[in-house]
Every structure is written in structure tokens, then in C-alpha cells.
Amino acid sequence: MKTNRFLMLLKTRGALTAASIAKELGITNEGARLQLLKFTEEGLVSSFNESTGVGRPKQFFKLTPEGNAQFPDTHSELTVKLIAGMRDVLGEAALQKVIDVTEQAGKERYFQELSPLSDLEERIAKLAEIRTREGYMAEYTKDESGYLLVENHCPICAAAKTCQGFCTAELNVFKFVLGESVSIDRMDHIVSGDRRCAYRIAKIQD
């Protein structure tokens, strides 16, 4: 996988200025600009100007589709072909049955790791750990509204675009393992064109 600290930072944080990248990575502004220019020439990074208040617009850098492609989509071409073949030969109902089986397996697998934990934040932290282990580059933050679970990468993106039932199944798994007393809403969705998938998690008030 052709990634380095620059691409990883843009993947996990979104569009940034050269100065912000330099500060995050502990390098000079000039060093950051030179590296970003190299990635721009390679087609991995693009830039745009945006006004952030008083003064001249600032230049921001973000990953291009080619840059995002440096982060693997697990067996994407084969998976898409298999999904299309199953849908054509066996029908939509058979495909849904496969998704249902996958969902149930996910519930059992995640529940086994989360069941010893009673505290909600501990459960969310463990869920983020599991998802990162599976390639989703997950992390969470806590604020006054509850928690935000963020997945900066989707290793099954091609399959999810072909059949969004996989995304629905994942959300169902999250709701199951975190419990009925918790609400989960998807705020951002990579399949819909967002940079990341993000889920707002909060305790349901009595």
C-alpha cells in the first residue's frame, strides 16, 4: 500500500493546509509544501482555496480518488463480480439471505468481545478497536451530546456501493452490540460521497 504520513493524515483528518500538516508531522512548512507538490504531481493530492475569515483565502489539500485508492478495498473487483453474479443468477432474495447471515455472524463475533464490558464508553472503545483491526481506521470522541464513532476508511467500499444492504447490516450490528438503551444515527457515509462514515451514539433518555 503506497501510503505515508502525509496521505494517512489527509485520510484521517480530511482537507488540511500545508501549515497544519507541518505542525501535525513536526516538519517545516516548506518541507510540507514540497511533499504536497510531489503528491499533487502524482495525482494523489489536489488543492483548493477556501476563505476561513478575514484575509486571503487559504489553500487546502485533500486526497484525490487516486489517493484514496492507496488504501485497499478488500478484493473489490472479485467481490463486485460475485455480488452481481449472485443477484443475476439467484435473485435479490438469495443475496439478502447472504447479507442476513453475515449480519448475524457479525453480531455474534462482536458481542463475544463486548459482552464483558458494561460501561458504554468502554464498549464504544472496544468496537472502534475491532473495526480498526478489520481495516476501517476507526476512532471515537466524546462530547456533550454523547459519542461520535468515525471510520476513516471502508475496506468493503466497492461491495457496499454495489449492495448497500451491507451498510444496513453493519448498522444493525452496532445497534445490537451497544444495546437497546443507546441510539445510533449515521451522520456521514462514504458510499454517499462523504470522506468518512460517522455515527452519533447517545444514551436514550428515560
Rank of each mutant, 00 (worst) to 15 (best):
D73E: 06
D73A: 03
T74P: 00
S76Y: 11
S76W: 12
L78A: 13
T79N: 13
T79K: 12
K81A: 07
L82Y: 07
L82R: 14
I83Q: 08
A84Q: 13
A84V: 10
M86T: 11
D88E: 14
D88T: 08
L90H: 05
G91Y: 03
G91E: 02
E92N: 12
E92L: 09
A93K: 15
A93Q: 13
A94C: 01
A94R: 07
Q96N: 13
V98E: 09
V98T: 06
I99P: 01
D100K: 13
V101I: 07
V101F: 08
T102I: 07
E103F: 00
E103V: 03
E103P: 00
Q104I: 02
Q104N: 13
G106Y: 08
G106C: 02
K107E: 12
E108Q: 13
R109P: 00
Y110Q: 01
Y110W: 05
Q112K: 14
Q112D: 11
L114A: 02
L117D: 05
S118C: 00
L120F: 11
L120H: 08
E122M: 10
R123M: 04
R123F: 05
I124Q: 11
I124M: 11
K126M: 14
A128C: 05
R131T: 03
R131K: 14
R133Q: 12
R133T: 06
Y136I: 01
Y136G: 00
M137Q: 06
A138D: 02
E139A: 12
E139M: 10
E139F: 09
Y140W: 14
Y140L: 07
T141F: 04
K142N: 02
K142V: 09
K142Q: 14
D143S: 07
S145V: 05
Y147G: 06
L148A: 02
L148T: 15
L149G: 08
L149H: 13
E151R: 09
H153M: 06
H153T: 03
C154F: 04
P155M: 07
I156N: 06
C157M: 13
C157K: 15
A158C: 06
A159S: 14
K161M: 08
K161I: 04
T162C: 05
T162I: 00
T162P: 00
Q164T: 09
G165S: 04
C167W: 01
T168S: 12
T168V: 11
A169I: 01
L171P: 01
L171F: 02
N172H: 10
N172V: 01
V173Q: 03
F176L: 01
V177I: 14
L178Y: 12
E180K: 14
S181T: 08
S183Q: 15
S183A: 15
S183P: 03
S183M: 12
S183R: 15
I184E: 06
D185S: 10
R186I: 05
R186E: 07
D188L: 15
D188M: 14
I190T: 09
I190P: 00
V191M: 11
V191F: 01
S192V: 00
S192H: 10
G193V: 04
G193H: 05
